[in-house]
Design a protein around this nucleic acid. Structure first.
Length: 480
DNA sequence: TTTTGAGTTGTTCGA
DNA sequence: GTCGAACAACTCAAA
C-alpha cells in the first residue's frame, strides 16, 4: 500500500460536504481523496429512483460537483454495479480505502454488506459511518432490549439518550489523487425527463445543498416558532419543505437539529414551543428504526391480520385518484400539486391517503407506489411509515375508526379554499361556502361559477358517508 | 409474570 | 352552535 494511496469517498444519499463523516475520515488520512457517485438503479430492488427523485438527483449531483470543485476536487461519476466500479476505481487510482455513509433500506444493506466484504477481500480498508440519522436504529432499544413499535416511548428514549453529535465542519480543501480516474458527465446518466414535464418542478424547487442551507436559514426565524399551528395549513407556507434535502442528504438531521436548538435557545420565551418541529425529525428516525428492524414492511403490513383485508381492485378509481379527478376538491388539489411539483403538503398527504385506503378501499401499496414515483422526497422509510399508519396496519397506526372526511378536513385546514383554487382552477370562482363540496352547491351558483358537474369537474366518484361505513365493515371483518 | 397506563394528526351522534 | 362520549379492544412498554 503506497503512502500516496488515496481514499475513495462513495457518495449516495449524502450529497453535501459539511457534516459528512465519510469525507472527514478520508481527509483525516492525509492523502488524496476521490469523491465518487455510482448510478446503479438496478441495485435498489423493487425501489429504483422514480422520475421525480431522478430529476432532483440530477440537480443535486451538479451542486455537489460544484462544491467539490471549489474545494479543489472533483466528483467522479460512474454507472454500473457498485462493487465492480469501486474495484475498478481502486485499481485505476491505487486507492487503498473506501469510505461511505450508511443507508438503511433492506436492499441497500444487503448490497453494502456485500460491497464491504468484497473490498476487504481485496485488501482494501472499507469503513461506513452514520451520516443520515441522529441515532443508529440499533442504538435505541426498549428496556427489554427490543425495537420500539410505538412512537412516544421511542421518542422519549431518544431524548433521554445523549444529544445528537454536533455536525462536522466541511473540509477547507481536499487533497487530489496523483491522477484523476475517468468520469462520466452527469448528463450522461440521463436522469432528466426527455419530455419536458418538469416546468412545475423548476418553478417550485432549487435542489442542491446550498439552497437547502438557505431554505433552513429562511425557515428558522419565524417558521420554527409558528410551526405548531401553521404546519397544518396547505394554503400557507408553514412547513420547512426540507424533505427532499433530507432524503438526498443535502442537509443532515444533525445540522438541522442543532441549528433549530440554538435558534430556540435565543428565544426569550417558551423554548419548548419549537418541539413540534424537532419531533418531526424524530418521526423520521422512527421510520428508519422500523424499516431496519422490520425489513418486510415496505411491501407487507406489519399487523398480520391486514393481509386478509378485502382490498378492491378498481383501475378506474385508482386512475381518478392519481389524476386528481375524484370529485373531492381537497383530494384533487393535493394529487395535482403532487403531479405538478413533485411534492404535497403533509396534511393533504394524510387526506389523500385516507381517501385511497378507506374511501376507495384500494391497497395502501398502490398509493405507496404512486408516491414513490411522483414525490421528489420519496423515501422508503418515511413512505412506508406514512402509508401503513394511514391504512391502520402499521406499528403505531391510526385507530381503525379514524377516517378522514375530505369535506370537513378541507373546511378546517383550507378555510378560504385558497389551496383548492390554486390547484383545481376550474373551481376557482366557486364561493368559499361550497368550495369543498361543489355537488351541494345550488345550480345557479354552479352556473355562475362556470361549473358543470360531470363535465368541467367530476362528481364525487364515491359517497363518503357510504364509503366510510364500508371501510368500518371491512375492518370489523378482519378483526372477527 | 402480572399489572397498569397509554397510544400524532378524527368523526359522528345526541344531549 | 357546542360539548362529551362512543367508536373496540389490543398491544406495547415499563414497573
Amino acid at each position: 500500500m503506497s503512502a500516496s494511496s488515496p481514499a475513495i469517498v462513495w457518495f449516495r444519499q449524502d450529497l453535501r460536504v459539511a457534516d459528512h463523516p465519510a469525507l472527514v475520515a478520508a481527509v483525516a488520512r492525509g492523502r488524496g481523496v476521490i469523491p465518487v457517485y455510482i448510478w446503479a438503479p438496478q441495485e435498489e430492488g423493487r425501489w429504483p429512483d422514480g422520475a421525480a427523485t431522478r430529476w432532483w438527483l440530477h440537480h443535486s449531483l451538479n451542486a455537489l460537483a460544484a462544491s467539490l470543485q471549489s474545494l479543489g476536487s472533483r466528483l467522479i461519476v460512474r454507472e454500473g454495479s457498485s462493487l465492480p466500479e469501486l474495484r475498478k476505481l481502486a485499481e485505476e487510482t491505487g486507492a487503498s480505502a473506501v469510505f461511505w455513509n450508511r443507508r438503511y433500506e433492506p436492499e441497500a444493506i444487503r448490497r453494502d454488506t456485500a460491497v464491504k466484504a468484497g473490498l476487504k477481500a481485496d485488501g482494501l480498508l472499507a469503513e461506513s459511518y452514520n451520516g443520515s440519522l441522529l441515532y443508529e436504529p440499533w442504538e435505541i432499544k426498549s428496556k427489554t432490549g427490543g425495537p420500539y413499535k410505538v412512537f412516544t416511548p421511542f421518542s422519549k428514549t431518544c431524548l433521554a439518550h445523549a444529544e445528537p453529535d454536533q455536525p462536522l465542519a466541511a473540509p477547507s480543501r481536499l487533497a487530489r489523487p496523483t491522477s484523476w480516474p475517468k468520469s462520466l458527465p452527469i448528463d450522461d446518466l440521463q436522469l432528466l425527463p426527455t419530455i419536458h414535464w418538469d416546468s412545475g418542478f423548476r418553478e417550485t424547487w432549487q435542489p442542491g445543498w446550498d439552497h437547502a442551507e438557505q431554505s433552513l436559514q429562511e425557515f428558522l426565524p419565524t417558521g420554527v416558532t409558528l410551526y405548531a399551528e401553521e404546519r397544518n395549513r396547505p394554503d400557507h407556507r408553514g412547513t420547512s419543505r426540507l424533505s427532499p434535502a433530507l432524503h438526498f442528504g443535502e442537509l443532515s438531521p444533525r445540522q438541522i437539529w442543532h441549528q433549530v436548538c440554538s435558534h430556540l435557545k435565543e428565544q426569550p420565551q417558551s423554548p419548548q414551543i419549537g418541539e413540534p418541529y424537532l419531533r418531526q425529525l424524530l418521526w423520521r428516525e422512527f421510520a428508519h428504526h422500523l424499516m431496519y428492524h422490520f425489513p418486510d414492511t415496505p411491501t407487507q403490513p406489519l399487523r398480520e391480520e391486514f393481509s386478509r383485508f378485502p382490498w378492491l381492485e378498481n383501475q378506474r378509481h385508482l386512475r381518478a385518484w392519481q389524476r386528481g379527478q375524484t370529485g373531492y376538491p381537497i383530494v384533487d388539489a393535493g394529487m395535482r400539486e403532487l403531479w405538478a411539483t413533485g411534492w404535497m403538503h403533509n396534511r393533504v398527504r394524510m387526506i389523500v391517503a385516507s381517501f385511497l385506503v378507506k374511501d376507495l378501499l384500494l391497497p395502501w401499496q398502490a398509493g405507496a407506489d404512486w408516491f414513490w414515483d411522483t414525490l421528489v422526497d420519496a423515501d422508503l422509510a418515511n413512505n412506508t411509515l406514512g402509508w401503513q399508519w394511514t391504512a391502520g396496519c402499521g406499528a403505531d397506526a391510526a385507530p381503525y375508526f379514524r377516517i378522514f372526511n375530505p369535506v370537513s378536513q378541507g373546511e378546517k385546514f383550507d378555510p378560504e379554499g385558497g389551496y383548492v383554487r390554486r390547484w383545481v382552477p376550474e373551481l376557482a370562482k366557486l364561493p368559499t361556502e361550497w368550495i369543498h363540496q361543489p355537488w351541494n352547491a345550488p345550480p345557479i351558483t354552479l352556473r355562475e361559477a362556470g361549473i358543470t358537474l360531470g363535465k368541467t369537474y367530476p362528481r364525487p366518484i364515491v359517497d363518503h358517508g357510504q364509503a366510510r361505513l364500508a371501510a368500518l365493515a371491512a375492518l370489523r371483518q378482519i378483526r372477527g
